[in-house]
């Protein structure tokens, strides 16, 4: 909350396009080889027997496909965005990911719309891996920096994936989503955009705050929740899932961000580093209510048939986010790096 006056120095000092990351397997090899050329044909997705909820190769490929809709990459022709071969390639990756999400997190059968809010509260109150408590109480500075790098993959484009959903809603649900998004984007003040506050945190910790600078280090298990947001946002048929995901994300955010801010203060950091997290304690205490009662509640009033989709999005988000948290905690407890080494291969 106190960073605003100082943060103009973090305002896009120069034009920067993130580099295309290194490939991590057969899927990204095919994809990245094509992307450096003119938009044209692209082969089928190579088969992959690994876990579609976390696989490194699949999720980096999917992340890159989506990234072409957000900021793009240096040296990649922007016309790839609507290239039919790339849209088809992305669709195959999405099918593998979505099928696995449905298998793990979709409750079968009709859902009673009148129980959705209490079900969302139950999902939000489930105890997950204690990552934010660990950050508050125990994490070393090195672990903390790793954590910030993991989060940079989303936080530097925070709330962008949900903006795809705005034209897919109407009435109370649309007004609620825009109320949340307006806050995420700084209420008309660019220095208060949440992604800009995160850059200030990264700068204060001596990290590279340029968009996409760390993508090569970030594993698939971290990219999966972000790909979930983009997939839900970019498919109108999944708008209920997008709303369910956002509701749970907002309902579980304030207290965990409070713990992270306390962890940074424990390590001696001041308001420039903690500002992003302090802001989220206050902002998400508002968004929590708006997202549950006005966004999810509003959508249910308009279309009760989306009850199952809303709960699916909520459960899927909670599941992939918990997998990320558990992976990071497990890596640290084994004294193994949770990030890849620069160069694309894994240390462990």
């Amino acid at each position: 909350m106190t960073v605003a006056a100082e943060s103009s120095v973090a305002e896009f000092p120069q034009r920067w396009e993130p580099p295309l990351p290194n490939s991590r397997g057969p899927i990204t090899e095919v994809l990245f080889k094509a992307l450096v050329g003119r938009p044209g044909a692209l082969g089928k997705v190579p088969s992959n027997e690994r876990d579609p909820l976390s696989d490194d190769d699949l999720h980096l490929a999917l992340y890159a496909c989506y990234e072409i809709h957000y900021r793009g990459f240096a040296g990649v022709d922007a016309r790839w965005e609507w290239n039919p071969a790339l849209v088809s390639f992305r669709g195959q990756l999405e099918q593998a990911f979505e099928s696995a999400l449905i298998e793990c997190f979709r409750v079968t059968g009709e859902q009673d719309p009148s129980t959705v809010k209490s079900m969302l509260n139950k999902i939000a109150n489930r105890s997950g891996p204690p990552l934010s408590r660990h950050l508050r109480d125990k994490a070393s500075l090195a672990d903390f920096k790793d954590y910030i790098i993991h989060r940079s993959a989303y936080q530097l484009k925070e709330a962008d994936p949900h903006s795809w959903v705005i034209p897919r809603l109407e009435g109370k649900a649309k007004a609620a989503l825009v109320e949340v998004e307006f806050d995420e984007f700084g209420c008309g003040r660019s220095e208060r955009i949440h992604a800009v506050l995160f850059r200030t945190t990264m700068d204060a910790m001596g990290l590279d705050s340029r968009y996409g600078a760390y993508l090569d280090l970030i594993p698939g298990v971290t990219l999966a929740p972000i790909n979930l947001m983009s997939m839900f946002g970019l498919h109108r048929r999944l708008r209920g899932a997008a709303v369910g995901h956002l509701a749970i994300a907002e309902m579980t955010s304030a207290l965990s961000n409070k713990f992270v801010a306390e962890g940074l203060r424990r390590l001696g950091y001041g308001a420039d580093a903690t500002g992003f997290f302090d802001e989220h304690v206050i902002a998400d205490s508002i968004h929590d209510m708006v997202a549950l009662h006005d966004l999810a509640g509003g959508l249910l009033e308009q279309d009760p048939s989306l009850a199952g989709d809303i709960l699916f999005g909520a459960s899927a988000w909670a599941g992939v986010d918990a997998a990320f948290a558990q992976y990071v905690l497990d890596s640290w407890s084994r004294k193994e790096p949770s990030l890849h080494t620069p160069g694309g291969s894994r240390l462990s």
Partner: peptide, 13 residues
């Protein structure tokens, strides 16, 4: 004391 508390957003909780 009647002093304004700074508002940084339109909706507050």
């Amino acid at each position: 004391n009647g002093n304004d508390i700074e508002l940084t957003r339109r909706t507050v909780a």
